[in-house]
Amino acid sequence: MDRNVRLAIAGFGLVGRRHGDAIATTSGVDLVAVIEPGEAGQKAAADQGLPCFNNIEEFFARSHADGMILATPNSLHVPQAMTCIDYGCPVLVEKPIATTSDDARVLVQHANKKTVPLLVGHHRRHNPLIERAKKTIETGDLGQIRAVQATCWFYKPDHYFETAEWRKKNGAGPIAVNLVHDIDLIRYLCGEIRTVRAVASPSARGFENEDVASALLELENGAIGTVSVSDGIVAPWSWELTSREYPIYPPTSESSYLIGGSRGSLSIPDLRLWHYPGRDPDWWSPLSATALTRDATDPLVNQIKNFADVIAHGAQPLVAGEEGLKSLQVIEAIQYSAENDETVALKSDQVSVELAS
């Protein structure tokens, strides 16, 4: 492609505008249109001099783009992405890819059949610190991965729920809304998840959903994972508060992930590698901590660059549709396990349920 990649954004709320800001700082990529039925989003598009359309169908009838970013409500992801694919337009769908894994599977299969690129916005994989952690694990510095621990604790204020009633409903708790990011990174860094055993407690504020949950994960490589999530705990241990990825969250100096191996352990996002340099592991010997270096680029910009490379040069997506499907399957398994007090076994093409022993 001997010209700039032309992108459109559907959904010009806070997330859509962050994508717009990322496009604006990415060379070789232009934002050419917005699809937004809401007044605030339409005004934001007008303020930036961007043409705005009421819906996806109107856009494709009157205009075109090389790629579409969907930053719309979750329930619209599948029908809108299907429309883009039918028009042969590569699409980047915000997480989660769909509201159910069944719908996500249909979408992935449709994209594969039409050979149209489908990407999912698990943008944390595009963070340089995750790239550094991935390389450290792959080069064997940790040895065999034996355990991973993820903590996702924070306190969402009451007005967060008052401004959007759906946030109080079943299925809108921190398992679905927040934990999907952490599950995706566990899969990316440590391997696929084979079984899930989870518990959850009802919202202390009286909402329909949970406000705290934990899960025990058995990975296919034999490692064990533990995750804990809550949007009602005052704490510094979450990706949002530790990664310094998004300036609206005041940063802390803590970590939210611990990955343990037979030769070393790694904390993330501070990237401290704990090991016994030059000797065999021995708990009577002093451990050494090394702070790993990494680049400091914006993961949203990196995600746009990857999307543009997929469109213009046929590059491989860092997060293809299949990856979004697999992470969503794990989230569904956690929800099912917590609701039914059962162990859930995951397979590559489906989620099956096994009774807890």
Rank of each mutant, 00 (worst) to 15 (best):
P117V: 03
L118R: 08
L118Q: 03
L118I: 11
V120N: 10
V120H: 09
V120W: 09
G121C: 12
G121V: 12
G121H: 11
H122D: 14
H122E: 10
H122F: 13
H122W: 04
H123C: 07
H123K: 08
H123N: 04
H123Q: 10
R124F: 02
R125P: 00
R125W: 10
R125T: 04
H126R: 02
H126S: 15
N127S: 06
P128I: 02
P128N: 04
P128K: 01
L129R: 03
L129F: 06
I130W: 07
I130P: 00
I130S: 02
E131W: 04
E131R: 08
R132H: 04
R132E: 00
R132L: 00
A133Q: 01
K134D: 04
K134E: 04
T136P: 11
T136F: 03
I137L: 02
I137R: 00
E138H: 01
E138N: 08
E138V: 00
T139W: 11
G140M: 01
G140Q: 09
G140F: 00
D141E: 10
D141F: 02
D141W: 08
L142D: 01
L142K: 03
L142H: 03
G143E: 06
G143C: 03
Q144T: 11
Q144G: 10
I145K: 03
I145C: 04
I145V: 08
R146T: 11
R146P: 03
R146W: 12
R146E: 14
R146N: 13
R146A: 12
A147S: 11
A147D: 06
V148W: 06
V148G: 10
V148H: 06
Q149T: 13
Q149A: 07
Q149E: 12
Q149N: 14
Q149C: 10
Q149K: 10
A150W: 01
A150L: 08
T151E: 12
T151Q: 15
T151G: 15
T151A: 11
W153M: 15
W153P: 05
W153T: 06
W153E: 14
W153V: 06
W153R: 13
F154W: 14
Y155M: 13
Y155A: 13
Y155D: 13
K156T: 05
K156Q: 10
K156S: 14
K156W: 13
K156D: 12
K156M: 09
K156H: 15
P157F: 13
D158P: 14
D158R: 10
D158V: 09
H159K: 01
H159V: 13
H159I: 11
Y160S: 03
Y160C: 14
F161C: 01
F161H: 11
E162G: 05
E162W: 12
E162H: 07
T163E: 05
T163M: 03
T163A: 08
T163L: 03
A164W: 04
E165R: 01
K168F: 14
K168V: 03
K168E: 07
K168A: 04
K168G: 05
K169P: 07
N170L: 15
N170F: 15
N170K: 15
N170M: 15
G171Q: 04
A172L: 08
A172V: 08
G173T: 01
G173R: 04
G173K: 06
P174L: 06
I175N: 12
I175M: 12
A176Q: 14
V177P: 15
N178Y: 09
N178D: 15
